[in-house]
Design a protein around this nucleic acid. Structure first.
Lengths: 193, 193
DNA sequence: CATAATATGGAACAAATGTTCTGATTGTTA
DNA sequence: TAACAATCAGAACATTTGTTCCATATTATG
């Protein structure tokens, strides 16, 4: 859609929108969702509040844009990494919350807003689906994987609610445990952990 | 501490504090954390904003009080129910998010604020510990239980992020799965699923 | 009763916010 | 060039918020 610029004006608008969304994510990363205001985003993007209001009429719209960009970016990146480089999904997830902790917190804060804002729910579901896809290689069974997704979601959540996040080793250990027992329930156990 | 009232004035103050905290929880239940303001709580409690500001100097303090009350109430109630009436913990948890959905959402919203407010983290941990206690009967192994707690936390979270929460049956099915496989990993498998 | 401490209400203030109005600027099309 | 649409900036407005100040009421203590 935004790839070809039929109109130079809308092309510039598209660039602005992207600029604003990226700034919005950074604002959330720095100040939390409570700090996500037209003015803060405008300042972060080096743009006037009128411009953010023009492209995102309400603050809620701004939030939708930020969450969508975050999910597409992170979930997409995760999927790519696992698929293309054949990385262990568990390790990729553990990395996700440890090395990119700041962004992970921001994304999860946005993600959680879906509890009150129905507009965000489809995107939240998108995240869960992507997570499920990432984990498919290690747990093929549908029910087991749904449970595992919940576990991962819970661990990610808890890692944001603790003074110090669980170490990558701890994370891998817990996830590994679930994968092992869950996998062994749905078919022949994997030869070795 | 607040049981005996050495001083009639502080006794009245204690009652007020309790009144305010209860009102704060109701406000979060109705409007979300974003609506948790001195004025809203004061109005809900039938009290002047000065009074709420007197007992809870900042809005953050108000949040701490609300979360603490919620956790003590819910986690305590859950523990009591399981211990005293020997209810199946899994069923008790499934009930918790289905029949008391409104309150559960409010509590989780407060709970999630710990991501940005360190003052809330000890209370968040208290919730996790209580959850672990509730689940001890079904999963005695430490590591397995820690993983299960994450699963429960994830499921509760997801149930708040969906347009329609998972049915109690679905919830029980998923949790049951994890308990089964997790339990069978730590000792002799249960005779039958 | 007098004095002090605690608790409370009413009013008020500065700061921040969402949003809109008014034009100006940039790009398109005829 | 002229007419038009999309995009933007500056200023402004009403609203809401946290918090404080001042006076008053309630309770305790001497």
């Amino acid at each position: 859609m935004t790839a070809e610029s039929r109109d130079g004006r809308v092309a510039r608008g598209d660039r602005r929108r992207a600029l604003i969304v990226a700034a919005a994510v950074r604002v959330v990363e720095r100040e939390g969702v409570a700090g996500l205001t037209h003015r803060a985003v405008a300042a972060e993007a080096g743009v006037s509040p009128t411009s953010t209001a023009y492209h995102f009429a309400t603050v809620d719209d701004l939030m939708v844009g930020a969450l969508r960009a975050s999910v597409e970016d992170s979930a997409g990146g995760l999927l790519d990494q696992v698929r293309r480089t054949a990385t262990d999904p568990v390790r990729a997830l553990a990395d996700y919350v440890t090395v990119h902790r700041g962004r992970a917190i921001a994304e999860y804060e946005l993600y959680l807003q879906a509890a009150r804002r129905p507009a965000l729910r489809p995107i939240a579901r998108q995240w869960l689906d992507a997570l499920s896809e990432v984990l498919r290689p290690v747990v093929p069974d549908e029910t087991a994987r749904r449970a595992l997704v919940a576990t991962v979601d819970g661990l990610l959540l808890q890692s944001l609610l603790s003074d110090e996040p669980p170490s990558e080793a701890e994370m891998r250990a817990l996830l590994g445990h679930v994968v092992r027992v869950s996998g062994s329930d749905t078919g022949p156990a994997a030869p070795h952990g």
